[in-house]
Amino acid sequence: MAEKALDETDRRIIAILQVEGRLAIQELAARCGLSPSPCLRRVRALEAAGIITGYAAVIDQARVGLPVSVFASVKLERQREDALDRFEASVARWPEVVDCYLMTGQRDYLLRIVVRDIEAYERFLKDKLTRLDSVASIESSFALGQVKRSSALPIA
């Protein structure tokens, strides 16, 4: 699909919805200087173009009993396409992995894993990550605190 050209109004709509996804269309329209119908048409067009891919609640992970974030750098034995595909398919099934990036540099993947405690991370390593044939090494770093978290892109 061709990339949709975003005008200033589209950018304003996206910037607002990134922060306030549950905003009523009437309020969104007022803040964008539109009437509700054209505003809704623009939102639907952004959704149809795949620019807005969904809406979600932001959850405080500590308050739901998952206070530990671990960043795991994973190096595979080989970087062949089939090994990458198998690794990615496995990671996609594991709810503990909330982010996974294919990387350049010394490591192949960077994962953010969210768990209840260190013992839960140890079980995740032993039962899942280390059991993948293609994994050559894993380097884990535990987050001490979260300085910034945002899902909002710098659209404006």
Rank of each mutant, 00 (worst) to 15 (best):
R11F: 00
R123Y: 01
A24H: 08
Q18H: 01
L34M: 12
W94F: 14
D85W: 01
A89Y: 05
A92N: 11
F124R: 02
D7C: 12
A29F: 04
V43Q: 09
L144R: 13
G65A: 03
Y109A: 11
A62T: 11
S134Y: 03
R22H: 11
P36M: 05
R42Y: 05
I118K: 02
D82S: 15
D127S: 04
R112T: 08
P36C: 06
P95L: 01
L125T: 06
R12Q: 07
G105Y: 00
D7Y: 10
E81V: 05
A15S: 01
A29L: 03
V58A: 12
Q106A: 06
E27T: 09
V64D: 06
V91H: 12
V97N: 08
V91E: 13
A143Q: 14
D133V: 14
A2I: 01
V135R: 04
R11E: 03
E20T: 13
L102E: 14
G33M: 00
E122R: 10
R131G: 12
Q26K: 11
R112V: 04
D133A: 12
D99N: 04
A83G: 05
R41Y: 11
A15W: 00
A89H: 14
M103I: 00
L153S: 10
V135C: 07
L17G: 03
E27I: 09
V43D: 13
F124N: 04
Q26G: 09
S151Y: 04
G105I: 00
R44W: 08
S37Q: 12
F87Y: 10
R112I: 05
C32R: 04
D7W: 05
S69V: 07
R44F: 01
R86S: 11
Y121T: 05
L66S: 05
A56D: 07
L111E: 14
Y109W: 10
R12C: 00
R78Q: 15
D133M: 10
I16T: 07
P67D: 08
A136V: 00
I16Y: 04
P36L: 06
S37G: 07
R86L: 09
R112E: 09
A62R: 14
